[in-house]
Amino acid sequence: MADTPVVAPRARPPTFRRRPPTPRKRPPRPAARYHRAAWAFSAPFCAVFAIAIVAPLAYATYLSLFQDRLVGGTVFVGLDNYLTAFGDRLLHVGLLRVALFLAVQVPIMLGLALLAALALDSGRLRFAGVYRIGIFAPYAVPAVVAALMWGYLYGDEFGLAGGAALSGPWILTSIGNIVTWEWTGYNMLILYAALRVVPGELYEAAEIDGAGEIRKAVSIKLPALRPALLLAAIFSIIGSFQLFNEPNVLAVLAPAEIATSYTPNMYAYNLAFNGQQYNYAAAVAVVLGGVTIVVAYAVQLTAARRERRS
């Protein structure tokens, strides 16, 4: 790519009398130097990325190709663990459960975050800063602490719900409530930041044309928010598939309702640390990662296509 402009001037017609600018005569060294500098700057990131992300992933994939049995020791089994995983009813149920969770909880949470961000941005709120911090604050509470706290609120000992929140039909809703409480503020902040960069002239122009606040929100703010919403949606999808802390903490209070295979992540954890099936757990984790990538990518692709069409 860097070479093409060097050749281009020679093809120009002779009427072009001025001497070509000197830098063009130089060999393409600067580009190489830029590349080197770029790599140097990103090297610390790459090193940490390799050690903290790539290596564990590669190791998990490697582990997933073996079986370590109490009788017979470790044997290479190729893709056997994956075949088992694809036929594993407990894993299917767990995946369907988090998919249902995703389909219901994520739209509610993003809807609330959107409303909050639009309200903050409207400039009509008094003490907007207080609202902003207030809605964001739950995100600062560690997930385990949040789940414990809600667990007590749900429980029949000190709680408000008389224990119903921890009974069979309500437990997934209860978990959804905790997650929404924790993450609405975080998503609101992403959306709010996106709104702040919308140029003020657009609003002025719209006002001159007679648009009210609602009209401005629908015609200017929402389109401007689309990339940020997509980002927030992808984060939430990944988060939903990795659901672990909240059900794992509540499982202590409602052990019969939240099985050891309640979510795929809990299943992998319990396979590894109660069942000593580290290899199969690694395969389950890889499958979960694959499903997450596919779903997240599908959402991104659909959004991109819709963007192009409009």
């Binding site: 109490l70 052990p255 309702e257 050891t260």
Partner: peptide, 21 residues
């Protein structure tokens, strides 16, 4: 069993559910 820790850990997913319900 030589893997009683595991066997006990999944009791709550199976028999335990019936006891609770």
């Amino acid at each position: 069993l030589p893997f009683q820790v595991y066997a006990n850990s999944v009791m709550k997913d199976t028999l335990g559910r019936a006891v609770a319900a």
